[in-house]
């Protein structure tokens, strides 16, 4: 097959583009393919390129763009503006440093901002204890409201024990 662009050379570059499910095929020779910006294989379009757009929309109004770009992770020195460029975070602490920015981003990407799947064994224990403490606190406030002070004291001690357990881990 001859090149669709120059019609002279044999086509060696065959590109199949799928945009919104529409398949589009292009056949070019190597010379013509090089001229095409969209065929530049080194700069393949990826999800990271969407980030800038997604993040700009999530900027809250209290911070100007200039200020928010200066937010930095204390642990690794990653800046928010650099994250916006690269789409990659620097270390696990970045998730805390940029938390306010990441939550809306996660909602946009995943439709959720809470993990519900597998949990590491080590963290598993702590998470379970934290959930238990939450439940006990709820019961405690009920007990106080109902003026069941003996029960309230028992719950308070239990919460203290569990909190100590977390500290030890």
């Amino acid at each position: 097959m001859l090149c669709e662009e120059c019609g002279k050379n044999q086509s060696t570059v065959h590109l199949t583009k799928i945009i919104n499910g529409k398949v589009n095929k292009v056949h070019l020779c190597e010379e013509c393919a090089k001229k095409h910006k969209t065929l530049d294989f080194d700069s393949t379009f990826s999800i990271h390129d969407f980030f800038a757009g997604l993040l700009d929309n999530t900027d809250d109004s209290t911070l100007s763009l200039g200020q928010s770009a200066k937010i930095q992770c204390d642990n690794c020195g990653m800046t928010y503006s650099k994250f916006r460029q690269s789409g990659r975070l620097g270390c696990n602490e970045c998730y805390n440093s940029f938390k306010d920015k990441l939550i809306p981003l996660f909602k946009r990407i995943h439709g959720h901002d809470n993990h519900t799947g597998k949990v590491p064994k080590r963290a598993g224990g702590i998470i379970r204890i934290k959930k238990d403490i939450e439940d006990l606190r709820k019961n405690l406030s009920i007990a106080v409201r109902e003026e069941e002070f003996e029960e309230a004291a028992r719950l308070r001690d239990k919460i203290k024990d569990l909190e100590k357990e977390i500290e030890m881990k």
Partner: peptide
């Protein structure tokens, strides 16, 4: 993953799950 979990300290967040370099992989 379990075998590695026993010997390594994975970066994990109570809310976000397993921490990854790219936000498109976070959670599971």
């Amino acid at each position: 993953d379990d075998l590695l979990d026993e010997n390594l300290k994975y970066a994990f967040d109570d809310k976000f799950g397993y921490i990854t370099a790219c936000p498109t992989n976070v959670g599971t």
